[in-house]
Simulated scan of single mutants.
Amino acid sequence: MSTNTAPRRSRRQETALWRAPVRRVERVTPRLARITVGGEELAGFVSAGTDQNVMLYFYPDGVELPATLEAARARWSTVRPLTRTYTIRRHDPVAHEIDFDFVLHDAAGPACDWAKHATPGDQLIFVGPSPAYQPDPSADWHLLAGDETALPAIAAILDALPPTADARVFVEVEDAAEEQPLRAPVTWVHRGAGGSLTDAVAAAELPTGRVDAWLAGERSAMVALRAHLLDQRGFDRRAVRPTTYWRRGEVGS
């Protein structure tokens, strides 16, 4: 059994409201859109890396958009935006750009609906960033597992790991068309064919030694996967970090 300490997180940066125009819209897969926002408005944004996230603010059409977090909060009693938390896929401090990946669900939701119709010039408002997970540099190997909502964070974590790091990656998506190239080999699990993330990890031959495990996705899947890693695999609970990104049956993203 591992004796890792708990996974660390970076310090929180100063929370601020950011308002930036859309620069590009790219359909990465049939069900995923990558939207790039950028401009001098983001010159002061400091990235925390890996699974850092921000809170997206969506206002009704015709509402004057706030320029600061204080202005937004001052209007909450009369105009309160719909909010959704999203992981930053990429931050380019030189070009002052940020990429967000939106899974285009069939169910309606403020973020999904906005992403489906976003065009260059549209404004995106967000607040953050959050602290970010810091991979354990003393771990013998790293386990990364999640569904498509976790792909931005998984990709960012892989970018943060040394090239020689041993990373085992499991990602559940709808089908083969939703697979993306990543920096490490991936075990792709196709939900549409009956696959599940927990079953794929349970069936895998995993390394021995000290593990650093990062997991994210739907709540019930995270509960089941964590239970497997602790109860069947015997992982140290301090080395297993599950995060719920969404809950089945709730209002869309």
Rank of each mutant, 00 (worst) to 15 (best):
V54M: 04
L82T: 11
A16G: 04
A43S: 12
A67I: 10
Y86S: 00
L225A: 03
A203L: 06
L124A: 04
R27H: 12
S196W: 02
G128D: 06
D106L: 09
P135Y: 11
A71Y: 05
A74D: 13
A176S: 14
T187I: 15
D159Y: 00
W188E: 09
V173W: 10
A153C: 11
S2K: 08
V79E: 11
V63E: 14
Y57S: 13
G194K: 04
F58R: 11
R8N: 07
V28A: 14
L144S: 05
R8W: 09
Y245F: 13
V169C: 02
T68W: 01
G128R: 05
Q134M: 11
P152K: 02
E250C: 06
A16T: 13
A153K: 07
V240S: 03
G121V: 01
E174I: 08
L229H: 00
A6I: 08
A160Q: 12
T85R: 14
T5R: 15
S2M: 07
P181A: 02
P152A: 06
Y86P: 08
M222S: 07
D51Q: 06
I98V: 07
F235Q: 13
A111L: 10
D212R: 04
G252Q: 03
A16P: 00
G194I: 04
H96G: 09
L143T: 02
G234I: 14
V251T: 14
G209I: 03
D99P: 07
R247N: 08
S220I: 13
A139K: 03
Q52K: 04
L182I: 02
R191I: 10
H105F: 05
L65G: 09
